[in-house]
Write a protein that binds this DNA or RNA. Structure first.
Lengths: 324, 324
DNA sequence: TCCCAGGCTGACAACGTTGTCAGATCCTCG
DNA sequence: CGAGGATCTGACAACGTTGTCAGCCTGGGA
């Protein structure tokens, strides 16, 4: 900038004014400066700029579990879109479901003076963010609630969606519903399970022996479905609590030519091409992410109202559920 | 930092030494400083730090077309992994296939003093990056070549993969191969088409009337496949140049109960569940991205050797190709 | 005894930018 | 013709940190 100023025969302050197109610069002086900028290939140092002028790095931090996962990729895409509408860049970090790493990364993002944080939490204690938030770095949590920190939260209606889906199974006459899930250590699994249980309990059909935990991949899901079907009193319907599990269930049911009803949580792209009909509790991931991002930008722009908890609705997409 | 220094009764420089755990600080002084840091909730300002100490923002920029697209999400994931191994954060921007936006975003990333750039180019002229590169911000291009800029490039073996796949079709006795692609404005499409044509020409089977352009979505692909099959002399095999096109082709061939051979470029997750057998020219997106990222970090660490062009091999994954 | 090396500390300037303020010029209006 | 505002410009300090350097102390060897 000093060089540009020298070449244009003005002060650095005037160069600053020109590159920020501030008012009160004579057009011909501005021309000279711009010529010098072009000649020297000058580019303003954004770091120095935001260091001097207080905050506003025009950057937000997004913390997710893993970028390559389509769910998080969709979130990242929607957030990037909203960020771009606000001329803001996106710093992305992956916690890999590791709370210690999450904490480390969030601290690092704050150290980089991001204007705000969007977090899909991995750990369950975020008290360490309190001081940052108080100091003016707003944080919005999505998909899972924050722990130990009053902050905005945007969640899916996991419980309501699961409840509606299972109620539908019950209405179709199913009396034994196999429930397949990963770990109850995961917030979304707990909520979906609770919703399903509520529906079954209301119908007097709750039976914990039909709940299978710890299913992490399609292969395990397929095996567990097989085991349940081989029991003396097999379920006539299955509820898969996420889409990896749904996938395995589809494979096994198809392989056996079963006529069991299959309900899944989470839609996925190719579901209409799959060889077994199944109905899903669907939701719009982009809406989840956009809602959270828009809330964050309202905070960044100075909204200091009380933390909000928003719920994104789910929808039952019926692609065929056999009656019992 | 001034406050921490005051509270600990030392100079700011000593605080700086402690937070950077530099040598030559008495353990008990360091203790006092750390206590003050904890009490005040001090966090080092990474902006100021990298402004003062020259470069090394420990941040790289990744420019892709669209984060939500699984191909780019996989790239982003692999890049994030390599970045994390180098204690570096990732600034992600989406060009949305718009060259003007690409240029704007790349400039912005440079202004943010990233240590390096990873670019999946949208435009075909990147001469404007020359000055940045000369000034020491290395750039590595992946999936598509850079234009007007000598820079490292990591590409897929599009031509070789397409060639091998089509040669296989020819060996199985197919004489009429329908080729389905998006626009030849896209580098990868041009290369794949060239590879396919080479194989057909070598066998004396080239027939441009069987090439269909401008296919952007599965629906169009399905329609075009139908049209080709309805011709008096229909193809006995199809080559779909990307996976959106493959998907439409699968649907239509399945719907008609056709026995045509289907070859696709790009594998995808659920392909083994699809209702029609098809063989793909597959590649490892993660390898593509990791290779590029690792090359970038070598550059960042000071490797000044001549720009390299790397080719990531493809593999023919046979899931069934009917003979003619 | 002195000297010097090594450990430890702080004052100061600087990174590249912009906010503040004061000064200079020009125009307009009373 | 003068006052006062609008327009334009630059000197200077400051943002939060770290590199440089000088200085202090302690201990050990000559």
């Amino acid at each position: 900038m000093v060089d540009v100023a020298a070449l244009a025969g003005v002060s650095v302050k005037t160069v600053s004014r020109v590159v920020n197109n501030a008012p009160y610069v004579q057009p011909e002086v501005a021309q000279r400066v711009l010529a010098a900028v072009a000649e020297l290939g000058f580019r303003r140092n954004h770091l120095a700029s935001s260091l001097r002028s207080g905050q506003a790095t025009a950057t937000i931090g997004l913390l997710i579990e893993e970028i390559a996962n389509p769910f998080y990729a969709t979130i990242a895409g929607a957030v990037a879109e909203v960020a771009s509408e606000h001329d803001t860049m996106l710093l992305i970090a992956s916690s890999e479901e590791n709370p210690a790493r999450e904490q480390q990364l969030l601290r690092d993002l704050c150290a980089r003076q991001v204007d705000g944080l969007l977090v899909v939490p991995a750990g369950d204690d975020h008290a360490f963010l309190c001081s940052e938030v108080e100091r003016g770095t707003p944080a919005v949590f999505l998909d899972r609630p924050a722990g130990g920190l009053p902050a905005d939260t945007v969640l899916l209606d996991n419980r309501g969606g699961a409840n509606a889906g299972v109620r539908q199974l019950v209405e179709l006459g199913h009396r034994r519903v196999g429930i397949l899930l990963d770990s109850t250590a995961i917030y979304t699994m707990r909520e979906r399970l609770a919703g399903a249980r509520d529906a079954l309990t209301a119908a007097g059909l709750a039976d914990d022996r039909l709940i299978r935990y710890g299913i992490r991949d399609p292969e395990t899901a397929a095996r567990v479905v097989g085991e349940l079907l081989d029991e003396p009193e097999p379920p006539s319907a299955f509820f898969a609590l996420n889409n990896r599990i749904s996938l395995g269930a589809v494979e096994e049911l198809h392989r056996r030519g079963s006529d069991a009803a299959l309900l899944g949580f989470d839609d996925f792209d190719l579901s209409r091409l799959l060889p077994y009909p199944f109905t899903v509790v669907a939701y719009d991931t982009r809406t989840l992410a956009r809602t959270a991002a828009e809330l964050l930008f309202r905070r960044i722009q100075g909204d200091r109202s009380a933390p909000r908890d928003l719920l994104i609705p789910t929808e039952l997409v019926d692609r065929g559920l056999p009656r019992r």
